[in-house]
Design a protein around this nucleic acid. Structure first.
Length: 289
DNA sequence: CTGAGTGTTCTTCG
DNA sequence: ACGAAGAACACTCA
């Protein structure tokens, strides 16, 4: 479930295992994820080494040595993951591309749903510009930029604006819900409508959620019990709290509606609804109030 | 069988 | 120009 914390965790994992060793084999099991031809990928990688890594938002760049230069670019879509293993027989199901390294390890790009992408760029700055990525939400986002960028999207739903990678790179669906809940802001607020105090809270909550998630290596079950994410009941362990109710006070049922076309969770008590907005879609079973 | 899913991009319509 | 809504992508799992 690759949002920024997952991608950062992949990056640190790969940093430990696949740098500084030549690529001696390229196995393409499904060309769908490639944004360049199989031949071009092979030509660019064989005999080359990865010298380092960089993450910008949800994009992972594996830096290449000369003469290829620049970087292999990875985006993990909805279901992308990485794996490192020694034997081809240990190759995970849904591995789409595998790089074999001189040391005998294999690096697999695993992606059941095939929304992920592998590309190559000779110029990282140009790559970021083409992608129109805003400042990285963890490493580069300032309150000033957040204010400016939300102002530019002033009429949009706050949630939609925060999912826009031009505003801040790396925020995804669950993170935005968590951040908005922690900042006491309703997802259907207008992006340009926030007070200075609300913008400060939003920025602080963004950093808090991202830092917590990265520290837990994106394992949801290890997140604090009072995080809203447990309402999604993805990877649940008993937290002592009922996930159907707001973690803050255990009284208000967590809402689930579609905002900006995405499943959105919030607490009506903590995050007061803007006057001009009514939910258009109930939960699938129609239980939301 | 149906529906929902963590992301991105494009189109269409207001 | 802006924004919302929907579709498309491709596939698994409940």
């Amino acid at each position: 479930m690759p949002e920024l914390p997952e991608v950062e965790t992949y990056r640190r994992f790969l940093d430990e295992l696949i740098l500084h060793d030549p690529v001696v084999g390229v196995v393409v099991l499904d060309t769908h994820v490639l944004r360049l031809s199989e031949e071009a990928l092979r030509a660019a990688l064989l005999g080359r080494r990865f010298t380092g890594s960089r993450r910008v938002g949800k994009n992972l760049l594996l830096l290449l040595d000369e003469p290829t230069g620049a970087a292999l670019t990875l985006h993990f879509g909805m279901t992308g993951n990485v794996a490192v293993y020694r034997d081809a027989t240990d190759r995970p199901r849904f591995t789409r591309v595998e790089l074999e390294l001189g040391c005998g390890l294999r690096f697999g790009f695993v992606d059941p749903r095939k929304f992920g992408r592998i590309g190559l760029t000779p110029d990282i700055a140009a790559f970021l510009k083409e992608k129109q990525l805003g400042p990285d939400a963890l490493d580069e986002l300032t309150p000033e930029h957040l204010t400016y960028a939300l102002g530019r999207r002033r009429g949009a739903l706050l949630k939609s604006a925060l999912l826009d990678q031009r505003v801040a790179a790396g925020l995804g669906n669950w993170i935005v819900d968590e951040v908005l809940w922690q900042a006491h802001l309703h997802p259907a607020r207008r992006a340009g409508d926030l007070s200075a105090d609300e913008l400060t809270r939003l920025h602080a909550a963004t950093l808090h959620v991202l830092r917590t998630a990265v520290a837990a290596e994106a394992r949801y079950r290890d997140f604090p019990a009072d995080f809203l994410i447990h309402a999604r009941e993805w990877d649940t362990i008993p937290t002592g709290l009922d996930p159907a109710y707001c973690p803050r006070h255990q009284q208000e049922p967590i809402q689930k509606h579609y905002v900006g076309g995405r499943a959105t969770y919030w607490c009506e008590q903590c995050q007061p609804r803007p006057e001009d907005w009514v939910p258009t879609t109930e939960t699938p079973d129609g239980t939301a109030a």
